[in-house]
């Protein structure tokens, strides 16, 4: 009995080793650079729901990419530079904080293209977001659908994990680039900002 158990245990161990060997797991850990951007003189609240914070992409090819932590880091860095002040919110909309604007990003879809799919030596990643924007009272201002793109060219002696991580970092940097250059230009956000910032009786940025 002990012998059978040992054999079964060994077989299970070997199977696990094979399974681990065939899968690709990427956990992105990087620091994003500060954004060089003029500041919007408002206070923003950032709310990352559980789905966003723990977002992990996986597919049938045993590729797993843990995106949530890096996404939250990137959004915090960029909005921290884009607004005069930002707060990370723990709950929303149960408790409305005293801020001018609330931003809550969601990942709608992730698409991955591997060299084995396309026959070209490129790893490509698309991330589709819905960046929801609310005013300080929790009234919706805009649903901004945005897609970012990253890629890494396959080179000799590069590992799949390394290339995928590079493609993810490129996609996240692209997200940041769009937030900086396009956030205030999105029609509904632009209208709201114009109204909010042009109010003559405005007490200025609500730093609390």
């Amino acid at each position: 009995m002990t012998k059978i158990s040992n054999k079964a245990f060994s077989a299970l161990g070997v199977s696990c080793m094979f399974l681990i060997g065939c899968s690709t797991n990427v956990h992105v850990q990087t620091d994003f650079p500060a954004a060089l951007t003029p500041e919007i003189p408002l206070v923003a609240g950032l709310y990352f729901d559980k789905n966003f914070r723990d977002f992990t992409y996986s597919n049938t090819r045993k590729v797993t990419i843990s995106l949530g932590e890096a996404e939250a880091e990137m959004f915090s860095t960029v909005f921290g530079d884009l607004f005069q002040k930002t707060h990370i919110l723990d709950t929303f909309p149960q408790e409305l904080p005293e801020v001018d604007l609330i931003i809550s990003p969601h990942i709608e879809e992730v698409q991955l293209s591997l060299p084995s799919d396309t026959q070209i030596k490129v790893f490509e990643l698309w991330i589709k977001y819905n960046v929801q924007v609310f005013d300080g009272n929790g009234v919706p201002v805009a649903d901004w659908i945005m897609t970012s793109y990253g890629r890494a060219v396959d080179r000799t002696f590069s590992s799949d994990e390394g290339l995928l991580e590079q493609a993810v970092i490129m996609a996240l940097r692209d997200t940041g680039a769009q937030l900086v250059t396009q956030f205030a230009l999105v029609r509904d956000i632009n209208l709201w900002l114009e109204q909010r910032l042009a109010l003559p009786a405005s007490p200025g940025p609500a730093v609390r």
């Binding site: 994003f32 650079p33 060089l36 490129m170 692209d174 900086v180 250059t181």
Partner: peptide
């Protein structure tokens, strides 16, 4: 590229 982020990314 980091010092001038995000003005020298592939998109910008």
């Amino acid at each position: 590229i980091d010092q001038l982020y995000p003005w020298f990314e592939p998109r910008t």
